[in-house]
Amino acid sequence: MKPFVLTLKASPVQRLDLSQLLPHLLAGKSIAEIAAIDIATTREKVSVGDVFKVAAGDGDEIRFEGGSERFDGIGRGLQSGRITVNGDVGMEAGRQMSGGALNISGRAGPYAGSCMSGGRMEIGGDAGDFLTAPREGEMQGMTGGMLVVRGSTGERPGDRLRRGTIVIEGHTGNCPGSRMIAGTLVVLGRCGAHPGFLMKRGTIALARPPVLGATFVDSGQFASSFPGIFSRLLQNESRGAAKLFRGSLRRFSGDMAALGKGEIYVPA
């Protein structure tokens, strides 16, 4: 199966809305039909053919050769198939995706993986603020799936996380896992202030924790199969995360200013 290949001709002159370019929407379309898809976000008209050289495929995969921080909404609503970007992307990459795989080799803007409910997303470089977070008025962030960031993220990754697993191999800004409802967030690099701020439930694991807030209470060390299981489940996703869960861990419970049934694991 040959993927659709969209090769960037030149740096785009405006922000682009690439959310129409999903495998199930392109299936059966000719090159001319794909080239005519409107991706403009201003009054200046821009279509796929203006920005990309299109090579038709027959599979359920789309490959972008070349990226830009102006590529917004890439993989938004992805249901199945695969999207690969060799380059950077803008905001809301993989927002509300429910299945399939989205791989970005470069950096991603804010709200990457926002409200994703399934599938697997990987960002090779850094990600902006509000990774997986809900947009205005939405009550939940990510509700399922797997998201791995090889680089670092901005502030509040995993905001209102409900279910699913996020692994950040680099550093993160302030308040990772803020308002978490459940789910799992792993940070291997340095972590900003107030991890788990107002979290209700869920698990945060920090390899290099900052001083935790006073509303997280020390639960000490205890025997559990849970870290061993997640170590094995994460082995293929992130060796660093697997290693963190293999080691001996200490649990802090909180945020006692909210429901208080969440937990932060730190190396003992």
């Binding site: 025997a223 559990s224 299981i229 997640f230």
Partner: peptide, 23 residues
């Protein structure tokens, strides 16, 4: 005090007990 953990299509329950957790 039980904790639900989902990963892919597997669902685990963690139940606090006196020697740690029953999973």
């Amino acid at each position: 005090w039980q904790i639900s953990k989902k990963f892919d299509d597997r669902h685990f329950w963690r139940v606090p007990v006196m020697d740690g957790e029953f999973l």
